[in-house]
Write a protein that binds this DNA or RNA. Structure first.
Lengths: 331, 331
DNA sequence: ATGAAAGCGCTAACAA
DNA sequence: TTGTTAGCGCTTTCAT
């Protein structure tokens, strides 16, 4: 293995100069730089990262902890994070907490051991409840989930607004009895629920919401029960892609017609929402922007640790499709 | 920061003993072990990974390079890999090559720099063509894509068999003019195509296959063209989930009835294949097993570098659904 | 602008 | 079984 002394010898300079060239530090003459670069190329030298990390205390590695990478929302976000990270010469350690506070704690501990430069985290509700950023030896950026009073960098969707506008749209389509199925674990479901409540209240309609464990199976069971009612509600609204999937399964199994018998809408513009018939109205989240912004916040925090806490709130996009087209609006 | 000498002092033993206890090495008396553990707990000692890695040459880190984590197949596989990896005290660096040989080369180089214990790789076809495992300073395990003559550990689907059985099923349903749309980039599409050809040949049917760039947009365009034919073919078969998605989009846009006017089948048991009407017949890949097996192969290779090369071939499962139910078989 | 040299915190070879 | 100690390869301070 070729090491820094070999390069120094070959170039006829000291190891210090080689180190300076390799890390792009200033204070090197052009001539020295060229000699070093030539030697590096000639010998095929690559710095030993472990040694560099031990000595410098920097790792250029960051952690990304999400509940489950199989959730399409997190798939997209993590892809965005990784792209930007590698472009900036950083590595990413990806972890799945499965909404389990113990796993989450384990991974956060691991991040400490790894001495990462920072962590992008989608916290469990349990952790979010009393998150103390100062308890961690690295900068933290929250994604997707955040409470107003937590003093930490974050990038989230305007969940209240999204829930409000989705509900408002259904009301404009003539729906009155709108049932909101929302994941009660996490902070996004309840926040979207609040938006729903506000929109219903603004239209003087009676809200009817069903909190569930945010898994498609539970959503399906709940939706099946709701679809047995007589008369049917006017609309079913899901607080997430997973819940929406459960609703879609139940509707297919029950053979209920959409939107003539019941309207359907939800969150997350997943490919399948365009493939089913009718296609489904959703709030699209700017997943790419969320991931990129989170990483940018983190890098900025690393650069200036004492900067004011910043939280970025992004707006969802209402994508109107067939599942909410009521041709004859009720009154 | 508390380090190993602090623990040694506190426990009244040498740093060597502490090191042995921390890494679970043998040759430590129970009493010493207990004293050390007590000191560790008391002081909250955590070994410095950078130092350990520099000194030991081990990183307990592995690389996972796939084309795109957003491809649901790779999402599942990588989740499986990560779970097993963390259970075994290893970290995972995930990279997306986007089927770009340059990116792939960049990440492989990065893996060398990171001194990873091994890499799980879904290679671009370009790399697969002349892959020399001995060119890499770490063990390599291929997933999803492999050619018979490459001398490297691998875990793949029996693609020929899967293509054969899917085609066979369609023939049994009375289909005669079966068009196979396959991704010509990579090795899986062509292998599945071979299975298709064999099944058609065995039934004395004329094959008709369309190689395309494996993106849903291209598949959609091709399918749209095929759906304008008069008379329509009997069936459209996709060589992957992405291609199948394009076909589904085209069919929806064209308003063609499935399966009465044309049958449809493909690969990858994605959630949406069950949500559309009719639900779609597919070959399900054992994604979990693929990921777990790949990691196991890698760990075994790390343990015994000179073991014989092993390639694990897993069988796909034919999941018959509505899109291939021809009630009145043709003759 | 350059070089000499002191470690970063740990592991493992060796000695006891 | 336990301890002593020499580095792993690099960065960075301090002199020059």
């Amino acid at each position: 293995m070729v090491k820094i002394v070999d390069v120094a010898k070959q170039a006829g300079v000291s190891t210090a100069s080689v180190s300076r060239v390799m890390s792009g530090s200033p204070g090197v003459s052009d001539e020295t730089r060229e000699r070093v670069n030539a030697a590096v190329k000639l010998l095929g030298y690559r710095p030993d990262l472990a040694a560099r990390r031990l000595r410098s205390g920097r790792t250029d590695t960051l952690g990304l902890i999400v509940s489950d990478i199989r959730n399409p929302f997190f798939t997209e976000v993590s892809r965005a994070v990784e792209d930007v990270a590698y472009q900036n010469g950083m590595r990413v350690l990806l972890c799945n907490s499965d909404e389990d506070p113990e796993k989450e704690a384990f991974y956060l501990e691991m991040m400490r051991d790894e001495n990462v430069s920072g962590v992008i985290l989608s916290p469990t509700l349990s952790l979010l409840k009393d998150l103390r950023p100062m308890n961690y030896p690295f900068p933290l950026v929250l994604v997707d989930r955040c409470e107003r009073d937590v003093d930490v960098d974050a990038v989230v969707l305007d969940n209240f607004d999204a829930g409000y506008r989705l509900t408002e749209h259904l009301i404009a389509q003539g729906c009155r009895r709108i049932v909101f199925l929302y994941g009660a674990v996490g902070s996004t479901g309840p926040q979207r629920h609040q938006g729903y409540l506000a929109a219903m209240s603004a239209a003087s309609l009676a809200p009817e919401a069903e909190p569930i464990t945010p898994r498609s199976e539970r959503a399906r069971e709940m939706a099946e029960r709701l679809l047995q009612r007589d008369p049917l509600s006017d609309a079913l609204v899901a607080s997430s892609g997973l819940v929406l999937q459960g609703i879609a399964e139940a509707i297919k199994a029950a053979g209920v017609q959409v939107p003539s018998q019941i309207a359907v809408a939800g969150f997350d513009d997943l490919p399948w929402t365009r493939l089913v018939t009718p296609d489904i109205t959703v709030i699209r989240q700017p997943t790419n922007e969320i991931g990129q912004t989170a990483l940018r916040l983190l890098l900025e925090r690393v650069a200036s640790p004492d900067r004011a806490v910043r939280s970025v709130v992004l707006r969802g996009e209402l994508v109107v499709r067939g599942s909410t087209q009521r041709l004859i609006p009720l009154r």
